[in-house]
């Protein structure tokens, strides 16, 4: 279990690092998908099979596909290649790297100050999740529904293209 966890963790981290350093957008996205799948395996190891499935289906399947659609629509891949090579100099990423390092150190401090606990491998079944979701967190469900609807309407409205020519019934004479 431990070895599996370590290998998968390593793959996730490596894929993420590759994702943020690729100049080609499509390459970066594909690496990201690999990272997500690795994380899904870790989730499964942690006893959340439902969530692991959800991760692959929604995250890697829907959201990343959305990204790819947009990239392909805007024909991004070719452009960013030349620019990114100039922008990969250490001067650019050394600042963010330091900031992230500081944040990471703080987080480790938080994490390590807890006593050492070993995780059980017992699974939390989808049935339990469902019951908890629809009894305890029913309000959250409703809110999430509203938020999704707002997202749909917002996305539709924002990306609408204004027609230069009005419908003949809307034209003013």
């Amino acid at each position: 279990m431990m070895i599996l966890f370590l290998i998968t963790a390593f793959v996730a981290i490596a894929a993420s690092i590759l994702a943020i350093t690729r100049t080609n957008a499509v390459h970066a996205l594909l690496n990201l998908i690999v990272s997500f799948i690795a994380i899904a395996i870790i989730l499964f190891l942690l006893g959340a099979p439902f969530i692991a499935a959800l991760e692959v289906v929604v995250y890697a399947g829907a959201i990343m596909v959305l990204f790819i659609f947009v990239i392909m629509m805007l024909n991004v891949g070719a452009e960013t290649e030349e620019k990114k090579s100039k922008w990969l100099s250490p001067k650019i990423w050394i600042g963010p790297a330091i900031l992230s390092l500081v944040l990471f150190l703080e987080l480790t401090y938080v994490v390590l100050s807890e006593s050492e606990i070993l995780l059980q491998s017992s699974q939390i079944t989808p049935k339990e999740v469902g019951i908890s979701l629809f009894t305890q967190y029913i309000l959250g469900i409703e809110l999430v529904a509203i938020m999704l609807m707002a997202g749909i309407i917002g996305a539709y409205h924002i990306s609408r293209v204004k027609r230069k020519v009005k419908h003949r019934f809307l034209k003013e004479e």
Binding site: G95, P96, L99, S100, V102, L103, E106
Partner: peptide, 12 residues
């Protein structure tokens, strides 16, 4: 960057 710095300081 500003947000991150604020986050670090608040956490600290």
């Amino acid at each position: 960057t500003g947000i991150v710095i604020g986050l670090i300081i608040t956490l600290a």
